[in-house]
Simulated assay, not measured.
Amino acid sequence: MRGVFVFPSIEQAAVVALLDHLSLGQRHPWLVDGCLYVELTTEDDCLYRDWEPEAVRGLSRACGQRPSWAFQIDVSGRVDGTAEVRRLTLTLLAQGGIAMDDYSDHPWTAEEIANDVAVDGLCFFDFRTHYERTKLTQ
């Protein structure tokens, strides 16, 4: 699974309502676009368990505080999922917030995602470039 954490600026209940609308009858996880599995995760659920300390610090700086909850979007390696991840992430960040993907420690804004901004040679959810870099260093 490849994943993204989304920290929207809107209230958690508003995101839940949106996901309920996008994933009729499916919750825990929500299934969006037939390939995205979305879960609400909190610090109590070990939100930052596998995170590098620098990534948590960067997120906290970008958000102005360490968020206590996020929505985790997972997509199977069996499908590309790039368009679906981008679309849902941009929807969740429409009123502000930050997203973090599996491939960089950069806190991504909706504007950066929409404009395909590259940071350290990677765009948002850029698993292809990340894979190529990893393959070259092995």
Results as ranks from 00 to 15, higher is better:
residue 34 G to F: 08
residue 78 R to K: 12
residue 137 T to P: 00
residue 134 T to P: 00
residue 38 V to N: 05
residue 65 Q to I: 00
residue 128 R to E: 15
residue 87 R to A: 14
residue 88 L to N: 06
residue 60 S to L: 02
residue 39 E to Y: 14
residue 58 G to I: 00
residue 44 D to P: 01
residue 125 F to D: 05
residue 56 V to S: 08
residue 9 S to L: 07
residue 88 L to R: 07
residue 19 L to K: 06
residue 70 A to G: 10
residue 123 C to K: 14
residue 26 Q to I: 11
residue 98 I to A: 06
residue 18 L to R: 15
residue 35 C to P: 07
residue 118 A to W: 02
residue 82 T to G: 00
residue 81 G to E: 06
residue 47 L to H: 10
residue 112 E to T: 01
residue 73 I to P: 01
residue 13 A to V: 13
residue 119 V to E: 10
residue 11 E to M: 13
residue 88 L to G: 11
residue 94 A to W: 02
residue 101 D to N: 08
residue 111 E to D: 11
residue 131 Y to I: 06
residue 60 S to R: 05
residue 121 G to N: 08
residue 40 L to P: 00
residue 58 G to S: 08
residue 61 R to P: 00
residue 115 N to V: 04
residue 41 T to D: 00
residue 68 S to M: 07
residue 134 T to E: 13
residue 137 T to W: 06
residue 107 P to D: 11
residue 137 T to D: 10
residue 87 R to F: 03
residue 20 D to I: 03
residue 114 A to S: 13
residue 107 P to A: 08
residue 98 I to P: 09
residue 12 Q to M: 12
residue 47 L to I: 05
residue 137 T to N: 11
residue 53 P to D: 13
residue 79 V to P: 02
residue 14 A to P: 07
residue 117 V to H: 12
residue 87 R to M: 05
residue 57 R to G: 10
residue 127 F to R: 11
residue 53 P to T: 02
residue 1 M to H: 09
residue 9 S to C: 12
residue 32 V to H: 03
residue 35 C to M: 12
residue 99 A to Y: 04
residue 45 D to T: 00
residue 11 E to A: 14
residue 5 F to Y: 14
residue 113 I to E: 01
residue 108 W to E: 04
residue 58 G to H: 14
residue 31 L to H: 09
residue 4 V to E: 05
residue 12 Q to I: 03
residue 86 R to M: 05
residue 37 Y to S: 10
residue 63 C to D: 01
residue 42 T to N: 02
residue 82 T to A: 04
residue 113 I to Y: 02
residue 101 D to M: 09
residue 73 I to A: 04
residue 98 I to M: 14
residue 73 I to K: 04
residue 55 A to Y: 03
residue 76 S to Y: 09
residue 32 V to D: 00
residue 96 G to R: 03
residue 68 S to R: 12
residue 1 M to A: 11
residue 96 G to T: 06
residue 135 K to F: 14
residue 133 R to L: 14
residue 24 L to H: 08
residue 126 D to N: 13
residue 89 T to S: 11
residue 2 R to E: 03
residue 72 Q to W: 12
residue 73 I to W: 02
residue 83 A to H: 07
residue 50 D to C: 09
residue 73 I to N: 01
residue 108 W to M: 09
residue 69 W to Q: 09
residue 101 D to E: 12
residue 64 G to M: 07
residue 32 V to I: 15
residue 4 V to L: 02
residue 25 G to V: 08
residue 48 Y to V: 09
residue 70 A to P: 07
residue 118 A to M: 06
residue 5 F to D: 15
residue 19 L to C: 06
residue 66 R to Q: 13
residue 4 V to G: 01
residue 48 Y to G: 04
residue 59 L to I: 07
residue 52 E to M: 13
residue 130 H to D: 15
residue 54 E to N: 10
residue 121 G to D: 12
residue 28 H to L: 10
residue 137 T to Q: 15
residue 2 R to F: 01
residue 98 I to N: 05
residue 18 L to Y: 07
residue 129 T to A: 15
residue 22 L to Y: 08
residue 71 F to V: 00
residue 126 D to T: 07
residue 106 H to E: 13
residue 86 R to L: 10
residue 119 V to H: 15
residue 11 E to I: 04
residue 136 L to Q: 15
residue 48 Y to P: 09
residue 8 P to N: 12
residue 116 D to M: 04
residue 14 A to L: 13
residue 44 D to N: 10
residue 25 G to Y: 07
residue 100 M to W: 04
residue 64 G to L: 06
residue 110 A to N: 12
